[in-house]
Nucleic acid binder design. Structure first.
Lengths: 153, 153
DNA sequence: AAGTCTCGTAACTACAAAAGTTACATGAAA
DNA sequence: TTTCATGTAACTTTTGTAGTTACGAGACTT
């Protein structure tokens, strides 16, 4: 199956928005994400409906984060995106009459339910503020290394 | 396509083969799986290369399970199928320069690695013999209920 | 009021992967 | 030699993400 980068792209966009201070236009976000402004609007539409961001038209308009970074988990975003398929390996028949197939489905369903529960739990634990903090650490490291290199040279 | 039912279909096919005693043709398997014989051959090709099944042409030919049910795990089959994508949610960029994107990728990579490890572990634990045993239980239950209904009527 | 900016959306294309289908070659058994 | 069954190539169908073009609808600026 082809890959789905909407969750990753959305997180990327939201963190940039949080850092920006004022509304970011779809064009600006599209530059950050190396994609198309229409794709940004399309993806953000779900987040707006979920109340995670607001959008304003006209001069000075764009996208603004509507909630505190600490109050939004990856689970919230996954939901707002319409719960894209996490596990594409699904049974051929949902409710088969064949007892062999029932046994197969039962084993796979159990496993996938467990994996999905794990993913949901992790998504629920990770908040945007965690990602922002990790970003800040990376920034500090980056600055440190740049300084070190500069001193050495 | 949204779903990938190859693992489920293959398990279904292998269990029928185990029960059948003699080689099963692609047509017979296609009937069981409600699909096309060419799809069966295509899917089984990987299992043959992995040594899990053998195929014979001509009269009395077909597909035969090459190994003991207890010696084959779902992990073996998943591998033989060419390791289809388990988790389609992937980062937009593999090795991004943007530190925000790095932080995002790090969080998601960790989570998906964990989920994938869980799936691999479960797949490794489940053997064809387990599914066959579950099938037998279902058969017994089924016969019991049929008998009960018959007695009641 | 005119002009410009920006979102909102429809419609279309591009691309990828699974699955279905047709056609035919290859080899084995009756 | 006929029939059966796999092996495979080639094409179509289906479904979903993503990219693109085009244009309408507000909102701010001058």
């Amino acid at each position: 199956m082809k890959h789905d980068s909407r969750l990753s792209a959305t997180l990327h966009a939201l963190l940039h928005m949080a850092d920006h201070g004022k509304p970011m236009t779809s064009d600006q976000l599209a530059m950050c994400l190396r994609t198309n402004p229409v794709v940004v609007r399309r993806t953000m539409a779900g987040l707006r409906e979920a109340g995670l961001v607001t959008s304003e038209r006209g001069h000075g308009g764009g996208w603004t984060l509507a909630r505190d970074l600490a109050s939004v988990s990856l689970r919230d975003i996954h939901l707002a995106l319409g719960e894209p398929v996490l596990l594409p390996l699904s049974p051929a028949t949902e409710s088969p009459g064949c007892l062999v197939e029932q046994a197969v489905n039962h084993a796979l369903d159990d496993t996938f339910r467990e994996a999905q529960a794990l993913l949901f739990e992790r998504f629920g634990q990770i908040r945007l503020s965690d990602l922002a903090a990790d970003f800040s650490r990376r920034m500090a490291d980056h600055a440190q290394h740049a300084k070190g290199n500069h001193d050495a040279a």
